[in-house]
């Protein structure tokens, strides 16, 4: 009996020890890895029908009757920091303590169960100085922790993702646009590259162990965007895991916020799975969801833009360009 009590106490102490967490975020750095994929590139997705979701039957045959372009990679920390600097200079965002906030015009509230009221006002865009934040602010400028420049931005809320895309005249993809871009139209595949998944295709639960060696970290984290492009990093040979339209990281690395607002729901959806997830969450139709003001260490986004008939007739702002 006495032994049993001792064992229980020992186990409890061990568990309590595991729960220890440091308070201050010290912005660790890592070695920068180049993937050769340009985060500023876009891919054209032509208008047409595609099968959306898990089931291949006519009920799920959808049509997107316009061409659109989508970012080849997730938005990176460097891109997001650049946006924050531009937006701060233009007065489009503000910093309150460790919260970067921006304006959202609000939306319809029906009072349905679990629905949250989202009125017009300033909402959290980016969470600074929290464990996992890779962007820091010195009172004037936003900078990125060394080595994380080409990693996908995380700790960004749905508002922050939307704010980024809107700032440049783009928008978040709808779920349908995202799925079409991930799957293409030629066949009915489970992952952007086909129907098989191995740790060499994407950054997910099963590849963490191998990736740690390359990234030089103690635990799993994001990989630079476009990492799984057929290159060899040390002894680790990646597959060229792009989607039919040439998109990278449409499965794994980080979940990606999508635009859709579902009726009577405040949650926003995410697609693609992340480095923390099992392969089942990387399937094209899989999803995750959360309230639009939440931020996580494994959630980012990418943008889409409409294809202009006349490329000169554009109201887009170029990254790095500040309005006076």
């Amino acid at each position: 009996m006495r032994r049993a009590v001792l064992v229980i106490i020992a186990v409890s102490l061990m568990l309590m020890g595991c729960a220890h967490q440091p308070q201050k975020w010290d912005h660790p750095t890592i070695k920068r890895i180049e993937t050769g994929v340009d985060p500023n590139s876009w891919a054209l997705v032509p208008a047409g029908q595609f099968f959306m979701g898990q089931f291949r039957n006519l009920n799920h045959l959808k049509n997107i009757d316009y061409d659109y372009e989508i970012m080849v990679t997730d938005v990176t920390n460097a891109q997001y920091a650049q946006y924050l600097n531009q937006a701060l200079a233009e007065g489009k965002i503000k910093v309150e303590g460790n919260d970067v906030k921006g304006y959202y015009p609000g939306e319809e509230f029906t009072g349905y169960r679990h629905e949250r009221k989202i009125g017009p006002g300033y909402y959290l865009y980016y969470a600074l100085e929290r464990p996992g934040s890779r962007i820091k602010f010195d009172g004037k400028t936003f900078t990125v922790d060394q080595g994380f420049e080409n990693h996908p931005v995380t700790m960004v809320t749905w508002f922050g993702a939307r704010g980024y895309c809107q700032f440049y005249g783009w928008r978040l993809p709808t779920e349908a646009e995202w799925e079409k871009a991930a799957r293409g139209t030629e066949d009915f595949r489970a992952y952007p590259w086909g129907n098989e998944i191995t740790p060499h295709h994407a950054n997910y639960d099963l590849s963490n162990k191998e990736l740690r060696k390359i990234l030089g970290t103690k635990h799993g984290i994001t990989t630079p965007v476009g990492f799984f492009n057929g290159r060899k990093y040390g002894d680790f040979q990646t597959e060229d895991a792009k989607s039919p339209y040439g998109l990278y990281d449409m499965a794994g690395n980080v979940w990606q916020w999508v635009a859709d607002k579902h009726e009577r729901m405040s949650d926003r959806f995410m697609k693609g799975g992340s480095w923390m997830d099992y392969d089942i969450y990387l399937r094209i139709w899989a999803y995750n969801s959360s309230l639009p003001w939440n931020y996580y260490i494994n959630v980012g986004f990418r943008c889409v833009r409409d294809v202009k008939e006349n490329p000169l007739d554009t109201q887009e702002k170029k990254p790095g360009e500040v309005e006076n």
């Binding site: 061990m14 568990l15 595991c18 729960a19 967490q21 440091p22 929290r130 464990p131 996992g132 635990h219 799993g220 923390m276 996580y296 260490i297 494994n298």
Partner: peptide, 15 residues
């Protein structure tokens, strides 16, 4: 409820 996701991995491994 009791650990930040960033630090969860050692705990998860032990569990």
């Amino acid at each position: 409820l009791f650990i930040n996701p960033y630090y969860q991995e050692p705990l998860v491994s032990k569990i």
